[in-house]
Design a binder for these strands. Structure first.
Length: 609
DNA sequence: GCCGTTTTCGGCCCGACTGTTTTCAGTCG
């Protein structure tokens, strides 16, 4: 193997976005520069969301392959080629040399609402070159002297920078889910309100949420907006018009409300569910059909509304099947929806899971007994089985189980299953909350003996195979030595997958959203190894993990690798996280047969290696 | 710079809200 530098899609996406930023700042012909910049940014977005590796596309199909990618034309394709072959883009270097500003610090600010144009004005007037200079200028009150700037704008920019620096500004879906649902429910109970839905990235079940968009159907917008502005969670009303109200909640998150009449509810919901790219593509399709799509409906050339009350209608008049929110990213779903029946994937449903294969108990770092976890899984979440996957001995922090403890626990699980089978009564010690529990845990439920085995630095396991083979199933995971080079880390996971005792790789990339990048792993190689060894990859539903992420789910499915969706529950309420894992699977286009724990327990066990 | 069910040139998604240069550009989703 020669010296081959891995080029990631995100590297190319970043550099294209930076070019877009610089073009907008420095091209002379201003009006055209906006569109030119937009082209670079669009290309950047497309590449960032591509499910296949652009380096590989170029390797296999060359320049022609690049030109097949939407929004990539001759100019950008040849720049990508230049980057892949030389590691540089001359045009970018030239643009960069023309300015003293720190592009690496500034190009991302656009995402939080500070435009290249603003940066240019600040640079020209105050010679601001980087973030800290900008922050100082604001603290010294110098921005307000520039024409077009005010004290209030100063404050807004400072707040945005502070959020940006903290890396927040986006909230984990699982953190805000209960609050968003609660407000949605309150809005729906206002007199005269017929429907209220949280749209936006929340409805698409993205792993992080920037703000919340509520769409409400009512003939009395004033009443709904007044209520919205006076909710106890509201810290500040940021804006209010005829049909829209913007507020900041006391957790720092912004929430928008749009109130529309019944006949516009579907189109408003479609419009504000996004994604932006999906919406743009939809509006272009409307234009091609001599129609006009906005949040108020679909209109013909005579301004007649021909659809709008439901989303289904909106898609229908554009000759598209209704598309589930989770896959509205304009990454191929619209083309499939055009084909009609059987075009779109039949996504796994939120009630399809029959079991949960990563559950912890108080034997290690869980909080309650095996029996309590089983009871909650069965009664509160309607599951038919759980796998008890406590940690193993080398994970000292969690008091991981050694060989003897693992086998003891497996025996206890046998006893628990016997009790379930024969309907024996539980004692007070078994179940803290005794009332009604004896009857409910009887019958069709099974606890599987299992473990979350620790993968050691060299890819071996900390428990020997002859012990592991006595368990119903084995998940393996990395919990240490996160910072090894990609090659080493990948080989470590591949070795674990090749271990005949390992059925599942748990949270395969180890990332913690907003906290920790995953370990460097070549996901393509891991998927290949999983395929060759019949090893299953997990989607961990814990909301700060959601690991595998959606694009890797897609990669796995394309390669016929099976998945499981687990809660990683350490407490009975954590089974509720399963919906986030299912959403993640849906966003990766997973269908029911792709996910093994949609199977009854016996079939599941037969399907494992 | 990209792209084509009006187009290989001349467009480029759309409306609400804000601030204020009181008529429209900038920003947002």
């Amino acid at each position: 193997m020669g010296i081959k530098i891995d080029i990631k899609n995100s590297d190319i996406a970043k550099i294209l976005r930076k070019i877009g930023f610089l073009v907008e700042m420095y091209e002379n012909d201003h009006s055209n520069a906006i569109f030119k910049a937009r082209s670079y940014k669009r290309a950047s977005d497309v590449i960032a969301n591509l499910s296949s590796n652009i380096d590989e596309i170029y390797g296999k199909e060359g320049l022609d392959g690049l030109l097949q990618i939407p929004s990539i034309g001759k100019a950008i394709a040849s720049k990508i080629e230049e980057f892949i072959t030389t590691g540089k883009i001359h045009y970018f270097e030239k643009l960069k040399s023309k300015t003293a500003i720190n592009i690496d610090e500034f190009y991302n600010l656009e995402g939080i609402g500070i435009s290249p144009k603003t940066i240019k004005v600040l640079h020209n007037n105050l010679d601001i070159k980087d973030l800290s200079e900008l922050q100082n200028a604001i603290l010294e009150g110098r921005l307000r002297n520039i024409p077009g700037f005010t004290r209030r704008k100063e404050e807004t920019i400072l707040k945005k920078i502070q959020l940006f620096k903290k890396g927040i500004g986006r909230y984990l879906l699982g953190e805000v889910y209960p609050l968003v649902k609660q407000i949605e429910s309150r809005l729906s109970h206002i007199d005269g309100v017929t429907k209220a839905i949280a749209a936006g990235s929340f409805r698409r079940m993205k792993e992080t949420i920037g703000d919340i968009d509520y769409i409400v159907s009512s003939d009395d917008p004033g009443k709904v907006m007044d209520y919205f502005g006076t909710m106890p969670e509201v810290e500040e009303i940021l804006g209010k018009g005829q049909s829209k109200t913007f507020v900041r909640l006391n957790n720092g998150m912004d929430a928008d409300l749009l109130v529309v009449p019944e006949e516009s509810f579907g189109s408003a919901l479609q419009y504000f569910t996004g994604s932006k790219e999906h919406g743009i593509a939809m509006r272009k399709i409307a234009l091609a059909k001599h129609l006009h799509l906005n949040e108020w409906g679909v209109f013909d050339n005579y301004q007649n509304r021909i659809a709008g009350s439901t989303e289904e209608q909106v898609y229908q008049v554009l000759d598209l099947d209704w598309i589930p929110p989770e896959i509205r990213e304009n990454t191929g779903e619209i083309e499939l929806a055009k084909k009609g029946n059987n075009g779109l994937p039949k996504l796994i449903q939120y009630d399809n899971l029959k079991g949960d294969l990563q559950v912890h108990s108080s034997s290690t770092d869980g909080t309650v007994s095996i029996e309590e976890m089983a009871l909650a899984a069965k009664d509160k979440f309607g599951l038919e089985y759980i796998a008890l996957t406590d940690h193993t001995k080398s994970l000292k922090l969690t008091k991981g189980l050694d060989e003897k403890q693992l086998l003891d626990q497996a025996n206890r699980i046998d006893e628990i299953n016997d009790k379930i089978r024969y309907g024996q009564e539980y004692t007070q010690q078994d179940i803290r909350n005794k009332q009604g529990s004896e009857a409910s845990i009887q019958g069709n439920f099974r606890v599987l003996s299992a473990a979350e085995v620790n993968i050691m630095k060299d890819g071996s396991l900390d428990i020997s195979n002859n012990i592991l083979d006595k368990l119903d199933l084995v998940g393996a995971a990395i919990h240490s030595n996160f910072t090894q080079p990609m090659e080493v880390q990948t080989e470590r996971l591949v070795k674990a997958a090749q271990n005949p005792s390992v059925d599942i790789i748990f949270h395969p990339t180890g990332r913690l959203i907003n906290k920790r990048e995953g370990y460097c792993v070549d996901i393509g190689k891991l998927v290949e190894a999983a395929k060759d060894t019949d090893t299953v990859l997990e989607i961990d539903s814990y909301y700060d993990r959601l690991d595998l992420k959606d694009e890797y789910v897609k990669t796995a499915i394309q390669n016929n690798v099976k998945l499981v969706i687990d809660s990683d529950a350490h407490h009975p309420v954590h089974f509720a996280f399963l919906k986030f894992g299912i959403a993640q699977a849906r966003r990766g286009w997973a269908e029911k047969p792709d996910v093994l724990n949609t199977l009854p327990v016996d079939t599941l066990l037969e399907s494992l290696k």
